[in-house]
Amino acid sequence: MTTFKLIINGKTLKGEITIEAVDAAEAEKIFKQYANDNGIDGEWTYDDATKTDTVTE
């Protein structure tokens, strides 16, 4: 398992969460579901060097 981080730069929700996932694709799926569940819809970027997804509304 690898640690992945999501940075949220939303209009109403800001912060970050960290998860353990098998790979980047699994982490992205989990993060996008989390964002959807919390009403966050924005531009996504991924930095492989830091294993960090960022969503900005």
Score class of each variant (00 low, 15 high):
A35F: 05
I17C: 15
K51P: 03
L6W: 11
G10E: 01
D37E: 12
D41K: 12
G39K: 05
I8Y: 08
K5V: 12
G10D: 03
D53H: 15
A25V: 10
N36P: 01
N36R: 14
T56N: 07
E57D: 08
E16S: 10
T18Q: 05
K32I: 10
T18E: 06
G10S: 10
T2F: 13
D53T: 15
N36V: 14
L6K: 00
G39E: 04
K11H: 13
I19T: 01
T2I: 13
E28R: 15
D23W: 10
D23Q: 02
K32Y: 06
F31H: 00
A24P: 09
E16A: 06
E26F: 03
A49W: 07
K32W: 08
Y46H: 12
T45A: 09
I40C: 11
E43D: 11
A25G: 06
T2V: 12
F4K: 00
N36T: 14
E16H: 07
I19R: 01
K5L: 08
N38Q: 11
G15C: 15
K14H: 09
E20F: 14
I7D: 01
E16Y: 12
D47G: 04
G10K: 04
G15L: 15
A24N: 06
E26G: 04
A27R: 00
T50K: 07
A49G: 07
K32H: 09
T50P: 04
N38E: 06
A21Y: 10
G10N: 02
K14W: 13
T54A: 04
K11T: 12
I8G: 00
T54C: 13
E20D: 06
Y34R: 00
E43N: 09
K29A: 11
D53I: 15
T56A: 07
E57F: 06
G15F: 15
D37M: 11
E28G: 08
A25Q: 12
T45V: 09
D37Q: 10
I40H: 02
I30M: 06
A25R: 09
A25E: 13
I40V: 06
G15I: 15
A49S: 11
D41G: 05
I30N: 01
F4R: 00
T56D: 06
L6S: 00
F4N: 02
D23S: 13
W44V: 02
D47T: 09
A49L: 14
I40R: 00
Q33W: 05
A27H: 00
K14I: 10
E28V: 09
G39A: 07
I17K: 00
A49H: 07
N9A: 05
K5M: 09
I19W: 03
D48K: 08
A21D: 01
A21I: 04
V22C: 14
V22P: 07
I19L: 08
V22H: 12
Y46K: 03
D48S: 10
T45M: 08
Q33N: 06
T45N: 07
A24V: 09
L13I: 14
I30C: 13
N38A: 13
D41E: 12
V22Y: 12
L6V: 08
L6A: 01
I7W: 04
T54F: 08
G39W: 07
K51V: 03
A49R: 09
D23P: 00
L13Q: 09
A24S: 06
N38T: 04
A25K: 10
K29F: 06
M1T: 12
G15V: 15
Y46I: 11
K5W: 07
A24G: 06
E28F: 14
N38I: 14
T54V: 08
A27I: 03
K32F: 04
N36G: 04
K29T: 08
Y34Q: 01
D53F: 15
E43T: 12
T56E: 08
Y46F: 12
D48R: 06
W44M: 03
T3S: 07
V22A: 13
T52H: 05
I7V: 12
V55G: 04
Q33E: 07
K5Q: 03
I8V: 07
T2L: 13
I30S: 04
T50Q: 05
Y34L: 07
A21K: 02
Q33C: 13
D37R: 04
E16L: 07
E26N: 05
D37S: 08
N36L: 15
L13K: 05
I40L: 07
T52I: 08
T18K: 04
D47M: 10
K32C: 13
A27S: 01
L6Q: 01
I30K: 05
D53L: 15
T2C: 15
D47C: 14
A25C: 15
Y46P: 02
K11S: 12
E26R: 04
A21L: 06
T12M: 08
N9P: 02
K51L: 10
D23K: 02
D53Y: 15
Y34K: 00
K14L: 09
T52V: 09
I17H: 01
K32V: 05
M1P: 05
K5T: 13
T50W: 05
I17S: 00
D37Y: 09
G42W: 10
I8M: 03
G10I: 13
A27F: 03
A35S: 02
V55M: 03
D47L: 06
G15P: 08
E57W: 08
I40E: 02
E28C: 15
I8S: 00
A35E: 02
I8H: 00
K29N: 03
E26W: 06
Y34A: 00
D47P: 05
W44S: 02
I40N: 04
T12C: 15
T50F: 06
I19M: 02
D23G: 03
I17E: 00
K11M: 13
E57G: 06
K51E: 03
E43I: 13
K51T: 04
D48T: 10
D53W: 15
K11F: 13
Y46Q: 01
E16C: 15
N38C: 15
T45P: 03
I8E: 00
T50S: 11
K32P: 01
A21C: 14
D47N: 08
K51R: 10
N9H: 09
I17M: 07
E20R: 11
T18H: 09
E28I: 14
K5G: 01
T56M: 05
K32T: 03
N9S: 07
E26L: 02
